[in-house]
């Protein structure tokens, strides 16, 4: 199986971290993966995307996922303000693909685009990721975890065990994680929020499990 995933959102929402965690988990499951972040020189709230390819065979292709089979939209601005690197935001999405959107509002996508997506037989899933993140983890910074949970719930693309291992590795503070300078700064914000790394890891996993269960049962 070969998956090509595009995560679109605004800088600071954790697309880069989410893609890295998912890729790490896939590798822990014995698969191959390539993770690529894409961001400009801007800082937070600028369009940021990450691309992830997961396969049972070695992956070579680099760069943007131009023809993904899964798109995850982290922020509504991606859809209605053009805050992404393709327009419309679902450009290139393969037929019978999956679209996961962080929103409680199902009328977000214009009529024209909805009919296009229907033609392509796209499975559209709405998740109130930011809201769930606040409720479960007490911070919107966990939005990416909820989105990951939703994805895993629908696709089982990685195992929850490997995801937990990846999250533990990422947030335990034992290994230094490098994505960008800004990512490091946001890490510090998270660390200040929780007194212990273990607590941070647990809250993240909880956010993932809540979304996992709800999408799996849906």
């Amino acid at each position: 199986m070969k998956s090509s995933i595009r995560m679109s959102g605004l800088g600071g929402q954790g697309m880069v971290t989410a893609a890295n965690l998912l890729g790490t988990a896939a590798v822990k499951d014995g698969k191959y993966s390539i993770v690529i972040p894409f961001f400009g020189a801007e800082k937070r709230l600028a369009p940021t995307e990450s691309y992830l390819r997961i396969s049972d065979e070695e992956v070579y292709e680099k760069g943007e996922a131009v023809y993904p089979n899964i798109i995850m939209v982290f922020h509504k601005d991606v859809i209605d303000k053009g805050k992404c690197y393709t327009m419309p935001f679902y450009e290139g999405l393969q037929s019978e693909g999956l679209l996961i959107i962080n929103s409680a509002n199902k009328v977000l996508i214009p009529e024209y685009d909805i009919s296009k997506l229907r033609e392509l037989k796209i499975n559209i899933i709405y998740v109130s990721a930011s809201k769930i993140a606040m409720e479960v983890a007490g911070t919107e910074l966990a939005t990416n975890m909820v989105m990951l949970g939703a994805l895993i719930g629908v696709t089982e693309i990685v195992t929850l065990e490997s995801m937990e291992k990846a999250i533990t590795e990422r947030f335990s503070g034992k290994t230094k994680f490098i994505a960008s300078g800004t990512t490091a700064a946001l890490d510090d914000v998270l660390k200040k929020k929780y007194t212990k790394a273990a607590q941070l890891i647990e809250k993240n996993m909880e956010a993932i499990r809540v979304a996992y269960t709800s999408t799996k049962n849906a």
């Binding site: 993966s33 390539i34 993770v35 690529i36 972040p37 680099k62 760069g63």
Partner: peptide
């Protein structure tokens, strides 16, 4: 190497 496509790309 090509920037980003290698420098920021996570692989095995």
């Amino acid at each position: 190497v090509d920037g980003f496509f290698v420098t920021h790309t996570r692989e095995i």
